[in-house]
Write a protein that binds this DNA or RNA. Structure first.
Length: 261
DNA sequence: AACCTTCGCAACCGCAAGGAT
DNA sequence: CATCCTTGCGGTTGCGAAGGT
């Protein structure tokens, strides 16, 4: 299996890698480490572009990479993380040691997406597939299927977390808003027009990381002092709650996850 | 047996983020 | 602050294998 080998106008080799090329790349990286992908091919004696070398190393040659069939648990994890993070394969891969983002993406596109559709689940929203276009899905019902993210608990707070996750992954609820609240120690209101993009990608990773930590703990309440987590996570929780508290999205739940109705 | 379709996966491409200058 | 360069990411494509007709 593989792509046809060909050479571009600059004489750079494209297509399938040979065992000898793999050996040369691994030998070079083992000796000199990974730095300056642009210069690496020439130094390693490869007629490839740096990008191709990087891809080959990260997705195939790097030690510890797990290849082959995904287990049922891994598939469940992918679906769960996708419901939280969307098509953010690199972020999902960070939650799944030894699997590459490319592998996860391929498996999702070729298998899991279709499987969800066959089960009547929209792979993008993780809610039921709508037969009519006019009705909007209720967030509270979005994770009610057996393949949903948090089937272990049906408490309000878990549903709240699901809603927050859906909001974050869909980018519907302005990460900038969350970040703004998180950076300032005191929760405050931010006007819609106020664009305070504090966050870099790293910052975003931190927000997501904090959220994932909360997720893992499957907290039964949103009471901050009961959270078994570090200050960063608590700050994140404060941020999430404050950032979303004025959205109608969570109007049915108070900060302790109890229904107000 | 021949052809067609689907699956699985490696690799490419374009673009954006972020660091260096 | 602006520009350039490198790195990383996500979408997509290409192709052999496997399965179906």
């Amino acid at each position: 299996m593989g792509r046809t080998t060909w050479f571009d106008v600059d004489g750079i080799k494209r297509g399938e890698w040979t065992a000898e090329e793999d050996r040369m790349l691994v030998a070079y990286i083992n000796k000199y480490g990974v730095r300056d992908w642009g210069a690496l091919p020439k130094r390693a004696g490869l007629h490839r572009c740096g990008k191709s070398c990087r891809l080959r190393w990260l997705n195939y040659l790097k030690p510890g990479i797990k290849k082959g069939k995904f287990t049922a648990q891994e598939e469940e994890d992918i679906i769960k993380f996708h419901s939280l993070l969307g098509n953010r394969w690199a972020a999902i891969a960070k939650q799944m040691p030894n699997r590459t983002d490319n592998d996860i993406k391929n498996h999702w596109n070729s298998c899991l997406k279709k499987r969800l559709r066959r089960s009547g689940i929209d792979p993008m929203t993780h809610g039921p597939i709508k037969t009519t276009s006019s009705t909007r899905s209720s967030p509270a019902r979005r994770h009610s299927s057996s393949t949903s993210s948090f089937s272990l608990s049906s408490t309000g707070s878990v549903r709240l977390l699901n809603k927050l996750a859906a909001g974050i992954s869909s980018r519907k609820f302005g990460l900038d808003r969350i970040k703004t609240v998180m950076i300032s120690s005191e929760p405050r209101q931010v006007d819609d027009e106020e664009k305070v993009m504090i966050g870099s990608k790293k910052e975003e990773e931190r927000v997501i990381g904090c959220f994932m930590e909360i997720d893992k703990n499957l907290i039964s309440t949103m009471s901050l002092d009961e959270l078994p987590c570090d200050s960063a996570t608590t700050t994140a929780t404060t941020g999430f709650v404050a950032a979303f508290s004025d959205y109608s999205l969570i109007e049915s739940y108070d900060l302790h996850g109890r229904s107000r109705a």
